[in-house]
Design a protein around this nucleic acid. Structure first.
Length: 278
DNA sequence: ACGAGCGCCTGTCGGC
DNA sequence: TGCCGACAGGCGCTCG
């Protein structure tokens, strides 16, 4: 579920601390427990627990939707998928029903990987490129200018929404922020990528960045029972708003299915590239 | 090189 | 009330 803004919010909180919760930078991992072994992707449980014990957290980064922990000797990567979250709490707090992995942090805190749906995954790797190397560029990468983005779009013939949620095309967008960015850019989710003009590519890239920046500024989106304290859900233009008025023109938002994902858009504002507007 | 279908999981919600 | 299907912020795998 978490997309780039939610993962970035978690990263910043872990790094800087928030409220009563301290930063975990510089903390030593005293030991770990796996409460659901399949949350661990690599290596096996025995080697994982042995290798991670005694390592210090030296930095916390993000690449796409991956949380990237630099440890003294390894890289710890966590992908939250649909329902994952990271909690920091005192070691003696009660163990929740969806705790999948617990990392004891000296002297008296722990970091918890909480994940109701069990889709999230944890890796402990000597070098992270095997995972991160498959990702497309970061949306905020300075080298990603609109001409480059236009070239990326034109090098394939596919529909815009599945392309934008494809992590090997661009890293970080998911279902919510893609729909929001497409609405802001006034592009239909089924537009073919090779029919996007340079001007539209420029507008789309700017819309993606503005949408993600807004999401980060609001500390992410909190929907349903997974609540993280963000409030971007109060500023959504189209996502989850079927039948409600488009903020630009008042037309009712429609919901279609694209690539097996619920997709929300304004049928008046968002017209496929190349089509004549009425 | 695509997209569709499905599996992985648990939980919530609306309709009957 | 209880049951049942639809749906959910993701992604990897097959298959055509």
């Amino acid at each position: 579920m978490p997309e780039l803004p939610e993962v970035e919010t978690i990263r910043r909180n872990l790094r800087q601390g928030w409220g009563e919760t301290p930063s975990i930078l510089g903390r030593r991992i005293d030991g770990a427990r796996l409460l659901w072994e399949r949350s661990l992707a690599e290596p096996g449980p025995a080697e994982f627990l042995k290798r991670i014990s005694g390592q210090t957290i030296t930095e916390i980064g993000r690449r796409g939707k991956f949380l990237v922990f630099s440890l003294s000797d390894d890289w710890l990567l966590i992908h939250l998928r649909m329902s994952g979250d990271i909690l920091i709490e005192p070691s003696n707090a009660p163990v929740g029903p969806h705790y999948r992995a617990v990392f004891e942090l000296e002297p008296d805190y722990r970091m918890v990987f909480n994940d109701a749906r069990k889709f999230g995954r944890i890796w402990l790797l000597q070098q992270p490129q095997s995972l991160l190397g498959r990702l497309g560029p970061e949306p905020f990468d300075e080298d990603l200018d609109s001409a480059t983005f236009h070239r990326m779009l034109n090098s394939a013939c596919r529909r815009l929404k599945p392309a934008l949620t494809d992590q090997s095309f661009l890293a970080g967008l998911g279902n919510i922020y893609t729909d929001e960015a497409l609405n802001r850019a006034r592009l239909h989710p089924l537009t073919l990528t090779n029919r996007i003009s340079p001007v539209e590519a420029c507008r789309l890239l700017a819309s993606i960045r503005e949408t993600l920046e807004d999401g980060i500024r609001r500390n992410g989106t909190s929907i349903d029972w997974v609540y993280r304290g963000g409030d971007f859900q109060n500023y959504l233009r189209v996502y989850g708003r079927k039948g409600q008025a488009c903020p630009e023109c008042g037309t009712q938002i429609e919901r279609i299915v694209v690539g097996q994902r619920g997709t929300y858009y304004c049928p008046k504002c968002q017209v496929p590239a190349g089509e004549i507007r009425i």
